[in-house]
């Protein structure tokens, strides 16, 4: 016990009881110590440096859609281990662990609801569920999201955050790229808007399918977005990658996305563009 502890025993115990663990968090970018409730109010964006931290799918939906008239779509779908895939762990165990940790059945949550009164459908990836990877349930839920839009004549908004296709469902995962893109083709044909929001990170099979197919592609600041991972590219070209490579600002400059929008302004911005694109029924 150090001398200061001897002097201040009561203060220390008071701190312990009054401040439960996990009330403070540290910004991964600027290191600022942040009060969690405040951070939540800021939608997990650091108020000091505007660093966009990851946000869960549910928190995203809660802050993006109006409170009233929400209805989840495709929640009955659950992943199955068709291939009996096993690496260092069984896929079955990985699914259980991810479900326990996230309280989600798979890596995409679809919610029908309203955005400032406008009926919309919202599909949101959950990165904490196996890196937001796309496999059969994600593909099927996404298609259900599109079908709901087709049926009710509503726009679709998707928030991507994903490492790509899920290896444990092998070719089934790859085929979800074709499946989701085909569904989006029907949405386009019917003249319904699709807004794709790319958040950190959006890579591989998700980037090379549904995420890049928005009528309007919006990225959050400094998100990593690309087809191949930076490490794979580095190993292939054997040179150091340029500063800011595959970040939102780089993609905007190269013409891959329409705009970069701060998370706290997404609700207003998306409502604003949808009002113009979806004017016939509004």
């Amino acid at each position: 016990m150090s001398w200061i502890q001897k002097i201040l025993p009561r203060t220390q115990s008071a701190t312990k009881s009054n401040v439960p663990e996990g009330i403070w968090t540290k910004c991964g970018s600027c290191g600022a110590v942040l009060y969690k409730t405040e951070l939540e109010k800021q939608l997990e964006v650091c108020p000091k440096c505007d660093h966009h931290m990851r946000i869960t799918a549910r928190a995203r939906i809660n802050t993006f859609l109006d409170q009233a008239d929400r209805k989840e779509i495709g929640e009955e779908l659950e992943p199955q281990d068709i291939l009996k895939f096993k690496d260092s762990k069984r896929y079955k165990d990985r699914i259980s662990a991810a479900q326990k940790a996230t309280k989600e059945k798979d890596a995409l949550v679809v919610m029908q609801g309203k955005l400032k009164g406008m009926p919309v459908v919202c599909a949101v990836f959950e990165f904490s569920f196996m890196g937001g990877s796309m496999a059969s349930v994600v593909g099927a839920r996404f298609v259900k999201a599109v079908e709901s839009c087709l049926e009710n004549n509503t726009p679709l908004i998707c928030f991507s955050t994903s490492g790509g296709a899920r290896m444990q469902e092998a070719l089934f995962s790859l085929m979800q790229m074709a499946k989701t893109s085909a569904a989006l083709a029907r949405l386009s044909k019917k003249g319904l808007p699709y807004i794709s929001v790319l958040t950190d990170p959006t890579m591989g099979g998700v980037s090379a399918s549904l995420a890049m197919l928005g009528d309007i592609n919006i990225a959050e600041p400094k998100a990593l977005i690309g087809f191949a991972g930076p490490r794979v590219i580095e190993q292939t070209v054997r040179e150091t990658l340029p500063e800011g490579f595959q970040r939102s600002e780089f993609l905007l400059d190269k013409g891959a996305i329409d705009m970069i929008v701060d998370r706290r302004e997404l609700r207003d911005k998306i409502h604003g563009v949808l009002k113009k694109l979806h004017h016939t029924s509004h």
């Binding site: 995420a211 087809f227 292939t236 340029p242 490579f245 891959a256």
Partner: peptide, 25 residues
């Protein structure tokens, strides 16, 4: 698909995604 700097700059993801969407129709 080629994992290279130029390929990423010119939109490898978008090029693949667009083919998937168009081929369906």
């Amino acid at each position: 698909a080629y994992p290279g700097v130029g390929a990423e700059e010119r939109g490898q993801s978008e090029a693949i995604a667009k083919n998937l969407k168009e081929m369906a129709e």
